[in-house]
C-alpha cells in the first residue's frame, strides 16, 4: 500500500475520505499529529506551526526565512511517518512536502461552494451562509497564496495530483473506492527499493531539521 496524501479546500470532505481509506487499507491516518510533532521538535505551539503553514508569508518572512524552518520541521515529522511505506495523510501541503517521492499517491478533493457552505453550517449551526462563504473563500485565498509563495505552484493545478475527484456528483464512499483502486495499482506498490528511498528521505529531512534546531539554540 502506498502513502496517500489528500489535499482539499476546507470543508471538502478530506478527513472523511482519509478515515475511510485508512479503514479500508488498514493503515494509519494522520493529520494534525504531524503538526504536533513538528511543534514539539521546535519547542513551539501547535497553533504557531499551523499558522505558519496556513497564512501566506509576509515581506518579513522572505528576509528571515523563518517560515522555511517550520516547513522543514513539518516535512521531517511527515517523512518520519512515511518510512513504513503505508500512511494516509490529510494534513496541509502533503503533495508538496512529499514531492518527487515514489510510492506516493497524491489526491485532491474538490467540492462546489454550496456543498462546502452546507458542511460548514452543519458543523457550526450559528454561522450564517454568508459568513460561511466568506470564511471558506478567505481560507482558500490564503492557501493559494501560501503555496504560490513557498513552492511557486498553484494549489488548484491538476498536474500536482495523481487523481482529482469532484464531490459534486461523487459521494465520499465512491471517492474512497476510487482512491483505494488507484492505490492498488502496480505503480504505487511500495517495494523494498521504494522503502529504502523513503527511509533515506526521512533521514535527510531529520538532518536538515537538526541543523536548524542547533543553529536556533
Amino acid at each position: 500500500m502506498p502513502i496517500i496524501t489528500i489535499s482539499r479546500g476546507t470543508m471538502s470532505g478530506g478527513r472523511a475520505v482519509a478515515e475511510c481509506l485508512a479503514e479500508r487499507l488498514h493503515c494509519p491516518c494522520v493529520g494534525r499529529e504531524v503538526l504536533q510533532q513538528a511543534a514539539e521538535s521546535l519547542g513551539a505551539s501547535e497553533e504557531t506551526v499551523r499558522g505558519k503553514l496556513q497564512t501566506p508569508p509576509g515581506p518579513w518572512d522572505t528576509v528571515t526565512k523563518e517560515r522555511h524552518i517550520y516547513v522543514v520541521a513539518v516535512q521531517a515529522a511527515l517523512a518520519g511517518q512515511c518510512v513504513t511505506g503505508t500512511l494516509v495523510y490529510h494534513g496541509l501541503a502533503g503533495q508538496l512536502l512529499l514531492r518527487g517521492l515514489p510510492g506516493v499517491l497524491r489526491v485532491r478533493l474538490i467540492a462546489p461552494m454550496a456543498l462546502r457552505i452546507q458542511s460548514l453550517v452543519g458543523h457550526h449551526p450559528h454561522t450564517s451562509q454568508e459568513a460561511a462563504e466568506r470564511y471558506i473563500r478567505k481560507v482558500d485565498r490564503q492557501r493559494r497564496r501560501w503555496v504560490r509563495a513557498m513552492y511557486g505552484a498553484e494549489v488548484g493545478d491538476t498536474l500536482l495530483y495523481d487523481l482529482t475527484i469532484n464531490l459534486r456528483a461523487i459521494s465520499l464512499d465512491t471517492a474512497c473506492v476510487m482512491v483505494t483502486e488507484m492505490a492498488q495499482q502496480p505503480h504505487y506498490e511500495v517495494t523494498d527499493a521504494v522503502r529504502a528511498q523513503l527511509v533515506a528521505f526521512a533521514a535527510t529531512c531529520r538532518q536538515r531539521l537538526d541543523a536548524i534546531v542547533a543553529v536556533r539554540r
Binding site: I110, Y161, D162, L163, T164, I165, P186, H187
Partner: peptide, 18 residues
C-alpha cells in the same frame, strides 16, 4: 478547470490500465 469534471486523472505517474 477541474470543476468541469467528476474526475481528473494525471498520467505523469499513472497509466492507462490504472
Amino acid at each position: 478547470d477541474p470543476a468541469l469534471y467528476d474526475v481528473v486523472i494525471n498520467l505523469t505517474n499513472g497509466s492507462i490500465p490504472a
